[in-house]
Structures are given as structure tokens and as C-alpha cells.
């Protein structure tokens, strides 16, 4: 059984006590309000980076110079509204080209964004993350928080990144030395949702070309949609190669979460509220943390904080537990 479930049983927090009384409706209303600012930010970012309105009207895509730039989240560059390029698509385009076998441009971009904010991108700046967030809000009698094999399955995204984003486009090439974007071609439901379906609706010629591959990708999208209703962000947890890359930076990124151990009362409220099944008291910068901020809001003692760190000096709102301890020992 998952540890999160164990904490559910042994919970003695004031919030849990509240949930047992008739104030349940009031609590659920509060929870919705808590997530609203993040969803607004996600929606605004999605709208800004997909604001080529003419594309949606004419069934074309944007062809300007901005497409040289990558956007931080999963955002298919064939979406009719897309102004920038998907880093995963760009990576495959460069490593699969005959001219280059390594992309300093995209690796540098992923390093820059990852080292700056880590998986904050997943929580706040990814259009497909928003899509899954909204799908998970659809009521269903029994939502699945965790299941047997959940943790090992999370390693799948790293394997997908290595095989489908790097190795296959790099080595499985045609006579001209060009490789296909295998992740986009065989797996990515983002391209189907953001580009395939809109373009096929708007463009009759493309509709005529859709065959087995489109049906295969449509099936993956439908499975992703159905699973997203049951499980929180299944694509992010198990499949997304971009999340896999950013996760490696979570521990060292400039923007970090912090736990003040002197304030933490181990009530379990943070791990209970986390939909990615992270326990912030064990590691508040876990590989799986998408930095949605729910744990911080749920903490009754405000032990969790976040902010930018520069040269070991905290710039956020409260002190680090690690920063406090040496001062105390110095006094004694």
C-alpha cells in the first residue's frame, strides 16, 4: 500500500476533523478556489503561446520567425495557433537531421529552464497539463490516487525519453541520414489533440490522408483522456519526456520548495493534498513535484515555502530549516 494512504488513516489534523462534519461542501468550495489562480495562469499562458488566430480560421499554421524559439511546455508546433516550437519536437528535429547529431540549442534551453524553475513548467506553463487538470475535475465515483506498480511505472517516462526522443531519431535514419520524430509519430497525444484534430477538422485534404497512424494516435489520445478522468495527470506521471527532463533539475533548480522542520508538525496535510503522490516532508523537491503549490496552501503551520535561492541566500518569504539550525547552535 502506498505511504500516502497510510497517512490518510492516521491523520489527526484540524482540516481532517473538519471534513467529517457537515462543512464538507464549504471545504470542497475552498479547494476549487485554491486551484483557480494556477488554472488561470495556465490558461493565459496557453492562450498567449497559441495566439495565431488566423491559423484556427484558415486551417494553417504560423510560419514566422518566432517558431525558432522553444516554449517550455508540451505545445505541438503544428497546432494552428502555436507561435513557438515544442522542445521535444525540436530535439527530435535536430538530432534526426543529417547535419547535427546533438542539439546544444534544445539541450541548453531545457537546462536553462530546468535549472531555473524545474517542474514548475509542468504545473503552471504546460497546455497539456491544463488539459489533464480540467479532465480530472470531471466527477467520477472512484478516482484512483495510486495503484500497485505506480512508482515503477513512473520510470517509463525516462525510458521513453531515451529511446523515442534521442536514440531512434538519432540512429534509425533513412538513406539521407534523416530520422523521424518517433515520439511525435508513435506516442505523443499532444500533437493529436492540439494539431491533428483541429487541422483535420479545418482541412479537407488532410482529412483524406488520415489512415492507420492517425487512428492509432487517436486511440492513445482517447485512452489518455479517459485515464485523466480517473488518475491525476497520467501523461505527466508516466509518459511525458519533457517532465522527465525537468524532473532531474527539481532538486537543484534556483526556484525551490523548502520545508521548515522547526514548524512542521507532521500532520500529513501536505502529502494528503498532493495529487502527484509526493510527501513534501520527506523531499519537498521530489522528481515528481510539479510545484502546483497545494502543499504550501494546505500546511496549517506554514512550514512549506518557496522562492528563488541565489548563492545560498534565501530570497523567499521564510527561512530555510537548514538556515535556522546553524544560527541556533551558534547562539548556544
Amino acid at each position: 500500500m502506498d505511504k500516502t494512504d497510510k497517512t490518510n488513516k492516521t491523520d489527526a489534523s484540524p482540516k481532517n476533523a473538519e471534513s467529517k462534519n457537515p462543512g464538507e461542501k464549504k471545504k470542497s468550495k475552498k479547494k476549487k478556489l485554491r486551484e483557480a489562480p494556477r488554472h488561470i495562469a495556465q490558461a493565459v499562458w496557453t492562450a498567449v503561446t497559441n495566439s495565431y488566430v488566423a491559423g484556427f480560421l484558415k486551417g494553417r499554421i504560423y510560419q514566422g520567425e518566432l517558431k525558432k524559439l522553444c516554449v517550455p511546455g508540451m505545445n505541438c508546433y503544428s497546432c494552428p495557433g502555436a507561435l513557438g516550437s515544442c522542445p521535444i519536437g525540436s530535439m527530435q528535429a535536430v538530432v534526426g537531421s543529417s547535419g547535427f547529431k546533438f542539439s546544444y540549442y534544445v539541450v541548453g534551453f531545457l537546462t536553462l529552464i530546468g535549472a531555473l524553475i524545474g517542474r514548475f513548467v509542468c504545473g503552471w506553463l504546460c497546455p497539456f497539463g491544463l488539459f489533464q487538470d480540467l479532465l480530472h475535475k470531471i466527477p467520477f465515483p472512484k478516482k484512483i490516487k495510486t495503484f500497485r506498480g505506480d512508482k515503477p511505472l513512473r520510470l517509463l517516462k525516462y525510458i521513453i525519453f531515451a529511446i523515442f526522443v534521442i536514440l531512434l531519431p538519432m540512429f534509425l535514419t533513412n538513406d539521407f541520414g534523416n530520422g523521424s520524430p518517433y515520439f511525435c509519430k508513435l506516442i505523443c497525444p499532444v500533437g493529436t489533440a492540439m494539431a491533428g484534430i483541429p487541422l483535420l477538422i479545418l482541412n479537407e485534404g488532410m482529412r483524406a490522408l488520415a489512415g492507420f497512424l492517425f487512428r492509432w494516435k487517436l486511440a492513445i489520445l482517447i485512452i489518455t483522456v479517459l485515464l485523466s478522468i480517473l488518475i491525476y495527470r497520467p501523461f505527466c506521471k508516466y509518459i511525458c519526456p519533457l517532465g522527465a527532463v525537468y524532473s532531474l533539475f527539481n532538486r537543484i533548480s534556483v526556484f525551490k520548495y523548502r520545508l521548515d522542520e522547526t514548524k512542521c508538525v507532521s500532520c500529513g496535510a501536505c502529502s494528503r493534498v498532493c495529487k502527484m503522490n509526493v510527501d513534501p516532508t520527506k523531499n519537498c523537491n521530489s522528481l515528481e513535484c510539479i510545484r502546483c503549490g497545494l502543499c504550501k496552501k494546505a500546511c496549517p503551520t506554514k512550514a512549506i515555502s518557496y522562492g528563488f535561492v541565489s548563492g545560498g541566500v534565501k530570497v523567499g518569504k521564510s527561512k530555510l530549516a537548514e538556515d535556522i539550525k546553524p544560527d541556533k547552535t551558534a547562539e548556544t
Binding site: 517558431k67 535536430v94 509519430k185 487541422l199 497512424l213
Partner: peptide, 18 residues
């Protein structure tokens, strides 16, 4: 590298849309 990305991204990616 940016030119390679641009050349790919300004055409509809047939693989991406399936």
C-alpha cells in the same frame, strides 16, 4: 540549429498529427 527547427516547425508535421 534554430534554422533546422524553423524549417521543421513552419511545415505541418505529418508525424505529429498522425
Amino acid at each position: 540549429e534554430a534554422a533546422v527547427i524553423l524549417s521543421k516547425a513552419i511545415m505541418v508535421c505529418m508525424e505529429c498529427i498522425g
